[in-house]
Amino acid sequence: MPHFEFVKSSHSGGNAGQECVEVARNIPATVAVRDSKHPDGPVLHLNPGTWRPFLRSLHSEQA
Rank of each mutant, 00 (worst) to 15 (best):
C20F: 00
D40A: 12
N26K: 08
L44A: 05
E5Q: 09
A63H: 15
D35S: 00
S36L: 07
D40R: 02
L44M: 10
H11Q: 14
L46F: 07
A24N: 11
Q62C: 13
R52V: 11
S12N: 01
L46Y: 01
N26L: 06
R34V: 03
T30C: 12
D40W: 04
L44D: 04
L55N: 10
S12T: 00
V7H: 07
A29H: 13
H38I: 07
S10N: 11
Q18V: 06
H45L: 05
S12K: 02
N47P: 05
P28E: 14
P53M: 10
E61H: 08
K8V: 08
L58H: 11
P2R: 13
S9N: 11
V43S: 03
R34P: 05
N15I: 08
C20E: 01
E22R: 02
S57Q: 11
S10P: 00
I27P: 06
S36M: 09
F4A: 04
R56A: 15
H45A: 04
G14E: 01
P2G: 06
F54Y: 04
V23K: 04
R52L: 12
R34G: 03
S12E: 07
A24V: 05
G13H: 10
R56W: 13
P48D: 05
Q18C: 08
S12C: 05
G14L: 13
E5R: 09
G13S: 15
A63S: 13
P42M: 06
V21D: 03
N47E: 13
H45D: 02
P53I: 10
C20I: 01
M1C: 12
H11Y: 15
P28H: 02
S9T: 09
P48A: 09
L55F: 12
P2Y: 06
V7T: 13
G41T: 06
S10T: 08
G17W: 11
F4L: 09
S9W: 11
V23Y: 00
V21Q: 07
C20P: 06
F54D: 01
G17E: 13
V21R: 02
W51P: 02
